[in-house]
Design a protein around this nucleic acid. Structure first.
Lengths: 113, 113
DNA sequence: ACTCAATTTCGGTGTTTGTCGAACATCGCA
DNA sequence: TGCGATGTTCGACAAACACCGAAATTGAGT
């Protein structure tokens, strides 16, 4: 097999201006994904495997894909690891206040659920 | 069959304090339902059949149920009709700013989509 | 009583979702 | 070169979802 081709397909991220509200709301309507977002809120960046969610690795990978393709997070590759970060600036530009409001609402919902 | 029982099962509405964030976000992540919410924002109350969405009546009924059971809208019966209203006060109390922020975001998303 | 209008409920269909395990790819390191 | 760690992709599966048409319900009007 040709080794000259790009190793990985390159991660797909939507442009800031084309982030879709319905995709974002859907991404945030899952507890596992919301947990990821909440944690990412407190840290600039974090490796995928280090999130305290108890689902199978493949499931976690799926959730990261949903978050990334909706525009909520960005991911960069470094060696073996994949680091995720909240797209706070892009989200704030596209939908001002949305992330803060939802995370504040989450705190009221009970952090556990 | 006993006619003395309540004719309709009585509409189920969650208490304001027990409105769940994930249910709300899920309810809002559908364009048809968001259209309903957006219109309801401009009017205190409206009959089900009068919303300009082009889905079958049975589908519309389903969407109203999702919105009602998530706590986003309330419904009251009057004769043949069923009137829906946004639960603005309850939502504001439970998740301050959420509805406004999401609706503002919707305006940026393009009202059509 | 009969009919019409508004809406729900009931079955059904096709799609999407969250989940998993197994297999694969990539990198760092011994 | 081989091993272990990290993470993804690939089916597969059950549950949930959006949608419809047909039938049922309910109340108003004739």
């Amino acid at each position: 097999m040709p080794r000259s081709t790009r190793r990985r397909p390159a991660l797909a991220h939507p442009e800031a201006e084309s982030i879709d509200l319905y995709d974002v709301l859907h991404a945030l309507s899952d507890p596992t994904r919301m947990t990821i977002v909440r944690i990412l809120r407190t840290e600039p960046e974090r490796a995928c495997g280090t999130f305290p969610v108890d689902v199978a690795p493949s499931t976690l990978s799926h959730h990261f894909k949903v978050l990334r393709e909706s525009g909520v997070i960005s991911q960069r590759e470094e060696a073996n690891r994949r680091f995720s970060a909240l797209r706070t600036v892009d989200l704030e530009q596209r939908f001002p206040g949305l992330l803060d409001t939802v995370l504040a609402a989450l705190a009221r919902n009970g952090d556990d659920a």
